[in-house]
Design a protein around this nucleic acid. Structure first.
Lengths: 210, 210
DNA sequence: AATTCTTTTGATACTGAGTCTCACTTGAGG
DNA sequence: CCTCAAGTGAGACTCAGTATCAAAAGAATT
């Protein structure tokens, strides 16, 4: 690996490191691209060359390719839902120290900076297609099979639930929370058959999706 | 209702109508706030007074308060998952003509304009809290009960799956698709116990969530 | 119907994200 | 060295979103 590549890697890491630090210290909104560039001692142009948007600084991670590899390495016959659980656990487990540290910071930010939480939630809803693309082949079905897509949706939904729980201050780490919810899911969808009860009329919740 | 209020209502409707038309005709990104304001014959300032962001023009709808009302009107004892199905179906069914027409246009846009699809997907991932806030009370549990949150996540995930299917060109209407998937969910999480199979290594999918 | 009060509007200016272009620097390779 | 390509910085530009303020217009009062 030449000097050039190493330099690029270093620049990217520096930008991300300073960005996360600034976001934490002075807030996401109050940190301009200029601030980040200045802190990392490069020009604003360079910042945008590395990260197409400010959000991407937060979102860039090294987990994705790992997940696919782990999935491929699982013994055939593993039940799908359990396979997903394993993938989730092992992917994070196999990160090197630096990557894991970044992951920590990012999750910390997600907890403390509402604006970043929002971004993470947004981005997370991407991914039905990605999960479906990973899961479909694993069970020998096309990625657009309705059941594959639905399964993928359920997985994403579970992640959203995990993030929502963290947000609400329910202790534990992101990974433990997600793993726990996935485990619970193995027993079926909770409350699905729970009978609803009459309740007094109250104010409607702020927004629910269209 | 005074002249003032009527005028406001008309202005908002005009802004939204022209905005959606322009988005459809010349694309979301290529349509500036100025364009919309000009088309509706108001100033740019006024546009932002009615819609805090450009996205909000697409996202403004009248469905939300309805859902809560429908939920409250259901007979006690209805199983939760079925209750949600009913709420979804009836909420859309009870829209007046104009609201329904807007809903149509918005869904059409979601299908044909990728950028708007992305926005809708983003926004949709909000709502775990909202759904939990609606569902928790209905079964006599706190909104932050882990099972309530997980259930809410599953519902949102199912929606994402429905949207993903529409996007992929799977015919049907949004509401039919969602209803169908919810129905399927009543039989448990599909594929959860499906054994995975060995498969040849291939290119990793573009991105999956962190 | 003239006057006062309040809401709504338009004009203007500003910040910051993101894009583009172009000239300059600096690794890589002969 | 010298050349070429890759990476960088500077500056200008567009557009979203915010803030301010003065003019216009509906509502209320006499």
């Amino acid at each position: 690996m030449g000097l050039r590549e190493r330099k690029k890697e270093r620049t990217r890491a520096e930008l991300q490191r300073h960005a996360l630090r600034l976001f934490r210290d002075q807030g996401y909104g109050a940190t301009t691209a200029d601030d980040i560039a200045a802190a990392a001692e490069v020009s604003r142009s360079t910042f945008f060359r590395y990260f197409p948007t400010k959000e991407d600084v937060v979102l860039f991670d090294d987990v994705d390719p790992v997940m696919d590899r782990v999935m491929r390495g699982l013994p055939p016959g593993t039940p799908l839902l359990e396979a997903v659980r394993t993938v989730v656990r092992d992917s994070f487990g196999s990160l090197d120290d630096e990557a894991r540290a970044l992951e920590e910071v990012r999750m910390e930010l997600a907890r403390s900076v509402p604006q970043i939480a929002a971004i993470l939630r947004e981005r997370n809803s991407f991914g039905v297609e990605q999960i479906a693309g990973m899961v479909g082949p694993a069970v020998g079905r096309p990625a657009d099979d309705p059941e594959v897509v639905l399964f993928a949706g359920v997985v994403i939904g579970t992640r959203l639930a995990a993030v929502a729980r963290l947000q609400a201050g329910a202790g534990r780490s992101y990974i433990d929370e997600l793993d726990g919810l996935l485990a619970r899911l193995a027993g079926g969808i909770p409350l699905a058959d729970e009978p609803i009860t009459r309740r007094p009329p109250g104010p409607a919740p702020a927004r629910s999706p269209a």
